[in-house]
Design a protein around this nucleic acid. Structure first.
Lengths: 147, 147
DNA sequence: TTTAAATCCTAGTAATTCAATAGGAAATTG
DNA sequence: CAATTTCCTATTGAATTACTAGGATTTAAA
């Protein structure tokens, strides 16, 4: 399960991508995504620290994607907000840490399973880009208006 | 990330499986798995309620697997202890619940990603059985003794 | 039938994380 | 300078996590 915060982050980033990476204010993102404004500010701050968005302060400021929509993946965003994707740290690449009660990683069946899980999961999450996600929503919304 | 509790549950169940489903006491499982005894009791109670283990009370009591090791998967155990494995409830089969701010599941790119993630994850977790896990540990341990 | 050995059951607790909110400082533009 | 917007610090209430305590109940063997 991902946190609400992560869900909001994904939402905010897809909104930014859907608006074709034009500058948007937190205000507008919050409204469009139904995200509590102050909470969103905190989320954008974290995304900014990791370079996933770029901000401009002051009047007529706002936020822009830090990279091209096809270069930012769901995995990138989730790692910033919720930390490692692997179900266990000992099976993580980005956040590796051994279990303190570990008796040997090579013989641990649990780690073995979780390594497979991490690989399967990151194959999905690191492949899905913001471009894909924005396109998906645009496509679906249009097809609904067509009806 | 799975909880410590879930890790302990997986550990306890693989121990039970490795001992070829012989009756074991919580005591012995706790020692072998380095699991806090009282915590393990609570875990075994949950597993028992869902039929994953069968218990016998009183002197010379203990716990046995509730099904054959090849019929119990890592996914089964994780769902009992940590709940749904999907990253979002709206993408879950076992624990489906719509987001309260949902504007249409068919057009939601986040749900779309999380559905793919859930499928990838459950393909791994629902395939790995206790038999596989016990075999893995036995195999690895023997090969280490061979050195 | 007592007694020792187990599981079972109810409660509680300290620490952490989650999901925000509040208030104002700093920067930018017109 | 004034309005707008991001940035920073800090707090808070609720839930979850990771356990622990203590005793009730059941069972088997002496």
């Amino acid at each position: 399960m991902i946190s609400n915060k992560a869900k909001y982050a994904l939402k905010a980033m897809t909104i930014l991508a859907r608006h074709h990476s034009k500058k948007m204010q937190a205000n507008a993102i919050a409204e469009e995504g139904q995200i509590p404004y102050k909470f969103l500010e905190a989320i954008l701050a974290e995304l900014k620290n990791r370079g996933l968005v770029i901000s401009k302060r002051g009047a007529f400021g706002g936020y822009v994607l830090g990279e091209e929509p096809e270069e930012i993946t769901a995995g990138d965003i989730l790692r910033v907000i919720d930390g490692p994707i692997a179900p266990l740290r000992c099976a993580s690449v980005s956040g590796y840490q051994p279990c303190d009660d570990c008796e040997g990683e090579e013989i641990c069946a649990i780690r073995n399973v979780m390594m497979d899980a991490r690989i399967a999961l990151s194959n999905v999450l690191d492949q899905k880009t913001l471009k894909d996600m924005a396109k998906f929503e645009r496509g679906r919304k249009e097809s609904i208006f067509d009806e």
